[in-house]
């Protein structure tokens, strides 16, 4: 046990150091507001990317409804900070708002998960598209949250430290999941659903866990997004937003934690540096997607990961000594 704690000490202190840097950096004046904005966007996009990757990469489905879950998180948290408790101290309110944003989206993940029991592939993709349209049209028709005009005057509570914190939490939880019984079940569904069931994988539980976890973190990202931009309306969460996240997933690499980070970073920085192109930058991203599908359909890091992102108890191949003695007992 002591050995286990020691092993965790180095990454844990590195993560804490990162948090301290994220908290102190804005105060030092070394990074300007714009750079800070980009860094926060990278963190938010990384959360979106890794959570969508759970469904689209590890489970091998094709969800285009991620922006819908994000919208639910954004609106739920904004209602809390703008409408219900505008005077509450931010230090307490904001974590609660993000958490409730995540839970709202997570709850919405349950029906979508249940629908995935019977449908797969293209059909499930259409269901997620329908879900996205329902959420967007629904929000447009609710006067309480401003209808199509959206919500204004959301306090700017998303700091670099909070964005970093939630990003670490998202990657940690999804890593735990992926390297657990449920994560292996999710990958087995991708590989062969019938064989998975025949090998004792309860595919219904696995699908629910995947969809709820994925939508929870989409909601968290939505909450952070709302409190970064200070303004949200239903059309910020349309199919284009989903497409942007899809590009990150398939550029970085499917079923990969490192790939999710890479994809989110690359796409965010690319879209920012393509600002001078104006609306033409919306042409560049889809074009990248086309090239990617032709030459590297599973992305830069598809199905692979850096060793430092894997859990420590990942198996190392054992020595072959034991094999020799077994050979005499074994068949053939």
């Amino acid at each position: 046990m002591m050995d286990g704690i020691k092993k965790h000490l180095i990454p844990l202190s590195l993560l804490l150091l990162g948090l301290v840097v994220a908290a102190v950096l804005p105060a030092t004046g070394l990074v300007n507001d714009y750079l800070q904005f980009v860094l926060i966007s990278v963190a938010i996009n990384a959360i979106l990317c890794v959570s969508l990757n759970l469904v689209n990469g590890w489970m091998g489905e094709f969800s285009v409804g991620h922006a819908g879950f994000m919208a639910l998180g954004a609106y739920a948290s904004a209602i809390l900070t703008v409408k219900l408790f505008p005077t509450a101290p931010a230090a307490l309110l904001f974590p609660a708002a993000v958490l409730i944003g995540g839970c709202t989206a997570g709850l919405a993940g349950i029906p979508v998960g249940i629908l995935s029991f019977k449908t797969r592939g293209d059909y499930l993709a259409i269901i997620t598209l329908a879900f996205l349209m329902i959420v967007k049209s629904g929000l447009e028709n609710i006067p309480y949250t401003g209808g199509p005009r959206g919500m204004l005057g959301i306090p700017r509570l998303t700091t670099l430290a909070w964005a970093y914190f939630w990003c670490v939490v998202a990657f940690w939880v999804i890593r735990n999941l992926v390297y657990s019984k449920y994560g292996r079940g999710i990958a087995a569904i991708r590989e062969d659903e019938i064989a998975a069931e025949a090998m004792g994988v309860n595919t219904r539980t696995a699908k629910l866990v995947a969809f709820v976890t994925s939508s929870f973190f989409a909601g968290v990202a939505g909450a952070l997004f709302a409190h970064q931009l200070q303004f949200i309306n239903p059309s910020s969460f349309d199919i284009l937003k989903s497409t942007e996240i899809l590009v990150m997933v398939y550029l970085g690499g499917v079923a990969s934690l490192g790939g999710s980070l890479l994809g989110a970073g690359a796409v965010t920085i690319l879209t920012q540096s393509l600002q001078p192109l104006g609306t033409w930058r919306m042409v560049v991203l889809p074009a990248i997607l086309v090239v990617l599908m032709l030459y590297r359909p599973s992305g830069i890091m598809g199905y692979r990961d850096w060793a430092w992102l894997k859990p420590f108890f990942s198996p190392a191949p054992r020595s072959n000594k034991k094999k020799e003695t077994e050979k005499r007992e074994g068949p053939q």
């Binding site: 939880v173 735990n176 999941l177 657990s180 019984k181 449920y182 994560g183 292996r184 079940g185 990958a187 087995a188 998975a196 090998m199 004792g200 994988v201 539980t205 866990v209 976890t213």
Partner: peptide, 15 residues
């Protein structure tokens, strides 16, 4: 994956 059906581990435990 096949062996997993023998181990007891709830989703919160795994997450």
């Amino acid at each position: 994956i096949a062996y997993d059906s023998q181990i007891v581990c709830s989703p919160p435990d795994a997450l």
